[in-house]
Design a protein around this nucleic acid. Structure first.
Lengths: 155, 155
DNA sequence: TTGGCACTCATACTTTAGGGTGATTTTGAT
DNA sequence: ATCAAAATCACCCTAAAGTATGAGTGCCAA
């Protein structure tokens, strides 16, 4: 709050200063006959430059900053009983369906069997598994299962 | 390559058109005595608007939206408090080499990678895995890994 | 010394998994 | 109402996994 207000004020001050400098420049130029013939062109150029800068400033200021997800360390409870690690699951961005497929993978089912269990086609399971591997940054289902177990998102 | 060049060309064309329109507007205004007194102000306003737009366009176009999302979950190391179930292992009748292969399978390695690690050929690993599946009475490596985990003969 | 077992490797073949692309439908949130 | 993500499915192709069979070597115990 306070910082943004200060920032805006600083910008206003900057722009005022720039404008004053421009006016001063114009006055100076008016006194010089040599430059009088090019006064109009100079003026336009200055205006163009200044408002280009204004546009840049506007765009950079108004475009909302991108959200940066902070790194987080998630540790499993050292106990034997399983609790789903919601944080890790959320971090991976797996959808509900993808989690289902992953769990069946971990149980040792083939894609064909998973398709049968979930009443969808083999191709659908292939699509799901591809997205799972992509999101988990692995190449094979065994890697995915191993990682999922260590993350605590699968039994 | 080709697309960016085309895009730039399109932008150049757009700006040329805008500029031509502006000149035309000026000519029109010059013919109107009524507007002549405000011609300079109008001109400046137009230039300001156009170059503000240019600034916005520049900023949005040139500033690449690099959103670096650092998402990292720390998971359990492979062996936390694991105790090998000797009895289950003996009951399965797995040989030492077969257990090695099974453990690497559980870690998510491909047959080719396992072969490289154990300095043997891919075919040898295939033979081993076939015998493993036979002894464990499973069909797939994922099933073998799952069963091995539940039996406590693998991390 | 010999038969069984573990380990190795090969060839040939079938099945499953995975990558890439594109499309449609459902659903959820604004 | 509309836009984005999720979920569904298809086709094509390559890679990996798995099956079957046979075979050579070395080791150990009967």
């Amino acid at each position: 709050m306070a910082t943004s207000f200060l920032t805006i004020n600083k910008n206003i001050l900057f722009y005022s200063a720039a404008f004053a400098s421009l006016l001063l420049l114009l006055k100076l130029l008016e006194t010089q006959l040599l430059f009088t013939t090019y006064l109009f062109e100079l003026y336009i150029t200055a205006v163009a430059l200044i408002f280009t800068a204004l546009g840049v400033w506007l765009a950079l200021k108004l475009v909302q900053p991108k959200t940066v997800v902070v790194e987080k360390a998630v540790y499993l409870p050292a106990s034997a009983n399983f609790v789903l690690n919601e944080a890790a699951l959320a971090a991976l961005g797996l959808s509900h369906r993808e989690l289902e497929v992953l769990q069946l993978m971990a149980a040792g089912y083939s894609n064909q069997q998973i398709a049968g269990r979930l009443f969808v086609s083999l191709n659908t399971i292939k699509t799901h598994s591809s997205k799972i591997f992509e999101k988990m940054q692995v190449q094979r289902r065994t890697q995915a299962v191993d990682k999922a177990r260590r993350l605590g998102i699968v039994v």
